[in-house]
Design a protein around this nucleic acid. Structure first.
Lengths: 256, 256
DNA sequence: CAGTGGTCTAGACCACATC
DNA sequence: ATGTGGTCTAGACCACTGG
């Protein structure tokens, strides 16, 4: 169908987003990623069928398949046999647990926690947050405070910092009106998709304000979870610190 | 080459370890897993080439490839282009960081910590440990205490519980004579391969004994990391509790 | 029924490693 | 030169979904 691998071929006809000498399926993957980022298909919607994509990019279905497999492995896309391949979304997480939530009850019976937004305020980015978010110190940010209640009891206190430029019009009222996970809110209301994150976990002693909110004693040991969340192109779009009571709860992690 | 998918075919000629109606490549994968478990090829050694396996199992090379891809995704095997596919091993971890070690320095420059074994003693499994290890309460276990020194300073205090039956002849002297990671030691000396693990993380206050070893104050917040480690067939073979100073260090986790 | 993703095959060729 | 894994194709058929 195409003359291939006779030299590191000019990747397809159009200039590609991928390194020019990458395998074809990775070039296709990069093109699809660009389309996802450009919201050519929206979260929850199906992308075109493998056959259609194969003809669009003038490659075999098997190559498209490998590209989509790679996207699925990255959780950018979800395959559903007989139905199609769908853009991954955070907006369907009301039924199950949010994908990035690692806090569990010690005794089984996992129920999704309830999120209570305490406060939204504007601020200027401090040096450390600015660096993490790729902003300049003093750039405007939004700072959200929220509590996660498990079975009615407060377990996590989050302080979430967002670049104000990406979340224009975010107010407490608007969040309270939304039904679903916070990342579903970000995705559907502001078009910001959280794709992956890195967390650094430490143990700290509760200060007075935190102890008050979480109903613990001052000085009680808490988990401090510092998260940086990335969107397309590994651009950081959220910095968050969670303080977590681990009396009856824990942070779950799988190694393999 | 073979009549395939005309009914849920009798899986290959020999009875398979896999559910009989699984896709062929998963049946092949299960067979390969059985061979790995049976130590037909040893850690670090190459498994037979795709072509040879294809002829051995009477399937196409592409099917063997999918099976091996799945094994590689599970970290049971490592592919090396031009050389072959090798049984994954913990014994080459002296150069880099042990695969299951998530504790990092806050400031870059990751150096592998030094492991100091404090103590090995025999004991009878308590009820909770017995349950986690699939033993009966009172069954013999080994309990190891060890410290991880980062740059000369103690950071992690581990208490490691092992089924005595699987680690006959484990002594402090023998460990001290071994060069390499602890899992490399288990793998090469006792033939026990740690394949995956699940960790539950909590924040606790340092007790006197721990504070002494880690050089912190009594009551200082520590990370408590409870790990259950599994070998083939998801059989648990290690239970471990790590207590970790997070002053200058943290537990790193990637979400995606 | 038609359309989708999932499996399997067979064969060609490429890239890398080793001798 | 040979052998390994890696990529790509083309086509057949299966399994699931929905009209």
């Amino acid at each position: 169908m195409r003359c291939r691998h006779s030299g590191p071929l000019p990747p397809l006809s159009a200039p590609s987003a991928a390194p020019s000498f990458a395998p074809l399926y990775l070039q296709i993957k990069a093109l699809l990623e660009k389309s996802l980022e450009a919201r050519e298909w929206r979260p929850g919607e199906p992308i075109p069928s493998e056959i259609e994509l194969a003809s669009r990019y003038q490659v075999s279905q098997g190559t498209v398949r490998k590209a989509i497999d790679a996207l699925a492995a990255d959780n950018l896309v979800v395959r559903r046999q007989g139905k199609g391949t769908f853009v991954a979304t955070h907006t369907e997480e009301r039924t199950s647990l949010p994908r990035f939530l690692r806090i569990r009850r010690n005794e089984g019976g996992d129920v999704a926690p309830v999120s209570r937004l305490l406060d939204v305020r504007r601020a200027k980015a401090a040096a450390d947050v600015a660096r993490l978010l790729g902003l300049k110190p003093g750039d405007p940010v939004l700072v959200l405070k929220r509590v996660l209640d498990y079975a009615g009891a407060p377990v996590v206190l989050d302080e979430i910092t967002l670049p104000a430029a990406l979340f224009r019009g975010l107010t407490k009222a608007r969040y309270d009106a939304y039904r679903g996970s916070m990342y579903g809110f970000f995705e559907s209301q502001f078009g910001v998709r959280m794709l992956k994150a890195q967390e650094r976990i430490r143990a700290v002693a509760a200060d007075a304000a935190t102890a008050e909110v979480l109903g613990t004693e001052v000085g009680a040991p808490l988990l401090a979870v510092d998260r940086v969340t990335l969107t397309y192109g590994d651009r950081p779009v959220e910095v968050r610190r969670g303080l977590c009571v681990t009396h009856g709860y824990h942070y779950l992690n799988d190694l393999y």
